[in-house]
Design a protein around this nucleic acid. Structure first.
Lengths: 254, 254
DNA sequence: ACCTGAACACCGTTCAAGT
DNA sequence: ACCTGAACACCGTTCAAGT
């Protein structure tokens, strides 16, 4: 090998240059990839750096720390949530659609619920999601306090339900089968309890163990929405502050 | 020091013998102590062993692994939850009392909500709590499926709310002050958003940030209980299956 | 039977030094 | 300015060896 011969321009690689520069976007994208494929525990700074073919210390030039990285991953994934524009007469159904969309996103990304559960979504996409959620909730006539809290309550519910569902088939693969086996075992255990000491558990062994994730989710959604309506539609109905529901209308000041 | 002189019997320490034998109870008690004083992140097997003046490998003779230890700590603390015996005509109030008691337990033990959030309480005290919860819920006339799921929904709600409250003043001390400062900052931020793009966030900046933890909790409780009543008291009222609500009564078979 | 020391295979974060 | 290697101060779990 006598000398370095320069590579002619048409041979230079267009995509995948020798080393793509490290950016925050590239880090966050790769982190999400590891999360989906291997879960939260596998998403270490070192593993991530290895995937990016760099040293693990280099990451700290772009992300602060691991917790901040998870903030960014969470906010990125929030782009996938669909929040409907309010349509008259479909309030309850649209709230459900929104929650189902959020749930689908959780189930599509392994361990995302674990990331979301103790995080307030204050990134750009989180804020946008909050705005749209409030818009939808208020279109049903919820008074201010209930609209403000209702969004929190609903997203907490969806997150917790997704967390519980994904933690049932923890670690290993085989989602449905494992959940079923666990339910069967639990059913047998509850039925075997002394009925004088645990009459309710013995009696309800069936209902307790037969509720699958979808049914639990829809039931909880029904309950919370009914509760919101019962608590919030009573004292003011539809037309207390006309014209503040859609973007661009005039607002009363602070 | 020429020779070992034996200690006379009346001088031998009655309590705190040279080395109390390592037992599961002692391990779990000590773990709870570390949790309360220093939080979940400080509760490592090594730190725990140090507190017990033993090698960290010794713990594995009594607890399996760290996750199982946390199961045991969680179940231990569940003894502190008070679940009322049903009294006629006080159903909704008693459900609230139960949830408030659970909340107090979470707030009394640092990071307990983080332990509880992804755990099903299947230890002895967890099972007992489930039985009593179902007994109370059914006394209000909830149909089987709703009683079975209602307990889950309520405890998930209490846990998630406690988690959010404790994560607001994360790490460092100063609970109330930090929460207030954070709320003020958030209020300013929301107010500063472009009102044409974020009309609802700007309008609701007040309600969103002024809800303190107690108010949030009571509001959520109200909503869920109202939802349970709306969804479950409709199709069967008080007397469908007489006498199965209290321990000892006859039960229909499986 | 119970406990121990040592080892294995990891972590997140910092920082002086290089290019 | 950006990246790196090396170091610091930790982890949970296993296991052969001791008493």
């Amino acid at each position: 090998m006598p000398e370095e011969i320069p590579v002619p321009p048409w041979r230079r690689p267009k995509k995948a240059p020798p080393r793509m520069p490290l950016t925050q976007d590239r880090i966050v994208d790769t982190a999400l990839g590891i999360l989906d494929a291997e879960g939260l525990d596998a998403l270490s700074m070192r593993r991530l750096a290895q995937e990016l073919k760099t040293g693990h210390a280099s990451l700290y030039a772009h992300v602060g720390n691991r917790d901040e990285l998870l903030d960014l991953v969470f906010d990125l994934v929030l782009t996938e949530v669909e929040i409907p524009q309010p349509e008259p007469g479909r309030w309850a159904e649209q709230v459900k659609e929104m929650c189902r969309s959020l749930r689908r996103v959780f189930l599509a990304h392994r361990d995302l619920a674990r990331i979301a559960i103790d995080r307030v979504p204050l990134g750009p996409n989180g804020i946008l999601g909050m705005e749209r959620t409030l818009n939808l909730l208020r279109s049903g006539g919820l008074r201010d306090e209930l609209a403000a809290y209702g969004g929190d309550l609903l997203s907490t519910f969806v997150t917790a339900e997704a967390l519980e569902q994904s933690s049932r088939h923890s670690g290993t693969e085989q989602s449905e089968e494992q959940a079923g086996m666990f339910a069967d075992q639990l059913h047998g255990y509850l039925k075997s309890l002394p009925p004088t000491q645990f009459p309710n558990l013995v009696h309800l062994a069936g209902p307790i163990t037969s509720l699958d994730s979808d049914r639990r989710f829809e039931l909880g959604l029904e309950i919370i929405i009914a509760g919101l309506v019962a608590a919030g539609a009573g004292d003011d109905a539809d037309d207390r502050e006309p014209g503040i529901r859609t973007a661009g209308s005039t607002l009363p000041g602070s």
